[in-house]
């Protein structure tokens, strides 16, 4: 048996060594962690316009993501009344960074009608503009979110990408992994004239070629969650998009 003193000494030495080691490692890798996080969400944003990037998206590198973001993407922060804010104004409101990609959407989501929304404007090499909107909602287990790219008629979908926190692999998680399912959204429309119709996810196959997509079999609730979040969020952008249409 060791005495209490020696036990304490041992524990003290061990914890110091261990926390120093980990702190050292954490500090060394921190910049990489932050870069990974940032690139991950930027890549998800770009995934919604992957067809228009003129590069093979499946082999895109982190540097290319950063480059496209720096060169061809304009970031805007808007609110639900249709106002746009400069980075300085956003920071003055107590946010950490001023650009759209700095918004912590998990937090914004909880604010309801008060929330700020990110908007990315992508200019393709041929000069055409694409508007990437954001949506967040509830899946089966936890939150789901995604980016929706609109053509410059502010109506036709040019592409989408979804992500999720904890959907079932192979079922709900297909909203992210199943590229073919995601492709169905391309060409669908949000508005019928002036009426906002959004996109429905229909079990048993889409009936309406313009406003519906097929559900994933076995993932009804996640699919409904996708439809709900599109319905919820896209309409929030309406006031601002109207000012753009002008």
């Amino acid at each position: 048996m060791h005495s209490t003193g020696s036990v304490l000494r041992f524990v003290l030495i061990l914890t110091t060594v261990v926390s120093l080691l980990l702190a050292f490692l954490q500090n060394g890798l921190k910049s990489r962690h932050e870069m990974n996080e940032a690139v991950y969400s930027k890549k998800a944003t770009l995934a919604s316009i992957s067809d228009h990037l003129n590069i093979d998206f499946s082999t895109i590198t982190d540097e290319q993501v950063e480059e496209i973001f720096a060169k061809s993407i304009e970031q805007v922060v808007v609110n639900q009344d249709g106002q746009a804010f400069t980075p300085e104004e956003v920071m003055a409101m107590g946010y950490k960074g001023g650009s759209a990609s700095d918004l912590d959407m998990a937090k914004e989501h909880k604010k309801g009608a008060e929330k700020m929304l990110p908007l990315y404007v992508f200019t393709k090499s041929d000069g055409k503009k694409y508007y990437i909107l954001y949506a967040r909602g509830k899946g089966l287990w936890d939150e789901i979110w995604g980016c929706i790219a609109l053509k410059d008629d502010f109506n036709t979908i040019a592409g989408v990408s979804f992500d999720h926190k904890a959907e079932t692999p192979g079922l709900g998680a297909e909203i992210k992994d199943n590229k073919a399912w995601v492709k169905q959204f391309i060409g669908k429309k949000l508005y019928d004239g002036d009426e906002f119709k959004s996109i429905k996810v229909r079990k048993g196959g889409a009936k309406d070629p313009v406003y519906e997509v097929d559900a994933i079999s076995g993932a009804t609730i996640t699919g409904d969650g996708v439809a709900d979040m599109l319905d919820d969020y896209l309409v929030d952008y309406e006031p601002f998009l109207k000012t753009l249409k002008g």
Partner: peptide, 14 residues
């Protein structure tokens, strides 16, 4: 040989 018996489990877990 240095690990005190009393806190064996916690040390291993750490």
């Amino acid at each position: 040989k240095a690990i005190p018996k009393q806190v064996r489990m916690i040390v291993q877990l750490v």
